[in-house]
Simulated scan of single mutants.
Amino acid sequence: MSSDEHFTEAAHAYAALVGQIRPEQWDGPGLGVWDLRSLVGHAARSLITVDTYLDQPAAEVVLDSPVSYIAAIRVIGATAVGGPEAVAERGRQAGVALGPDPAATVQGLLERVLARVETAENPLIETIGGGMLLADYLPTRTFELVVHGHDIARALGLPPPELSEAVLAEVVTLAVGAAFREGAGAQLLLALTGREPLPSGFSVV
């Protein structure tokens, strides 16, 4: 499967979860400071940014892999004005932008973005971290959709979305690559082989 096929599968799984949210659940707990609407809105940005960046051609490749993008975003997040609260607020605003029928908004967004990706081939796009090929950017969006899909499922008390081994392998491989990029490769290896637990709060994003 290609990166766009993985993205398509993850996007459909996310939209299917959103379609199961009952009206009274939207104001309930989501993740951290976010209610469920804000969490879903934040995840929707994985579709919105693809739509936006397809209209922003880049002059050169600055980020040559999905791991490079994850690393760049960590730096941007650590130095951005407003810090974590600014990220939280963007999630809240994205939730508000879903409007009175969030499931319909997400479905419409999904159809628009997937149609564009299908015909876009592999352009060089300008992302928040710099220029990169669409094929390298899409795995970072698949990662976000899968991770936040699990968050949404937990918030709803539902089992995680059923995804192919290929999609899960891409997401896990990206997470491992990001850990190695941050110098945590040996630490992760020890945890995966049952030698030592990961420290509280460990994250690659």
Rank of each mutant, 00 (worst) to 15 (best):
S3W: 06
D4N: 06
D4E: 09
H6W: 06
T8N: 04
E9H: 00
H12G: 03
H12I: 07
Y14S: 04
Y14D: 00
V18F: 02
Q20A: 15
I21D: 02
I21C: 11
I21P: 06
R22G: 13
P23L: 11
E24N: 08
E24H: 14
D27P: 11
D27H: 14
G28S: 07
G30Q: 09
L31W: 10
G32A: 07
G32L: 07
V33I: 14
L36R: 03
R37A: 14
S38E: 12
L39Q: 10
V40D: 00
A43G: 15
A44C: 12
L47K: 02
L47F: 05
T49R: 08
V50Y: 05
V50S: 08
Y53C: 02
D55C: 15
Q56M: 14
P57Q: 12
P57E: 04
A58D: 09
A59G: 15
A59W: 09
V61I: 15
L63A: 11
L63H: 00
L63M: 13
L63C: 10
L63F: 01
D64H: 15
S65Y: 12
V67P: 00
S68A: 15
Y69R: 11
I70N: 01
A71D: 14
I73S: 01
I73E: 05
R74M: 05
R74S: 14
I76Y: 12
A78R: 14
T79S: 14
G82H: 10
P84T: 01
E85M: 11
E85G: 03
V87A: 14
V87R: 09
A88I: 00
A88P: 01
A88G: 09
R90Y: 02
A94R: 04
G95N: 09
G95M: 07
V96Q: 04
A97K: 07
P100M: 11
P102A: 08
A103K: 07
A103S: 10
A104G: 07
T105Y: 13
V106E: 01
Q107V: 11
Q107K: 09
R112T: 15
A115T: 10
E118P: 02
E118G: 13
E118R: 13
T119C: 11
P123E: 06
I125L: 09
E126M: 15
I128A: 13
G129N: 06
G130P: 07
L134V: 08
L134Q: 02
A135C: 14
D136F: 08
Y137S: 06
Y137L: 03
L138Y: 03
R141M: 06
R141C: 05
R141S: 01
H148I: 02
G149Q: 08
G149V: 07
D151G: 09
A153C: 05
A153T: 04
R154K: 15
R154I: 06
L156A: 05
G157E: 08
L158T: 08
P160A: 09
P161K: 04
E162K: 08
L163H: 00
E165N: 11
E165I: 09
A166C: 13
A169R: 15
V172Y: 02
V172F: 12
T173I: 00
T173F: 04
L174W: 01
V176L: 03
V176C: 04
G177W: 06
A178V: 11
R181Q: 02
G183Q: 02
A186T: 13
L192R: 11
T193A: 10
G194L: 05
P197C: 10
P197F: 02
L198W: 08
P199I: 12
F202G: 12
V205N: 10
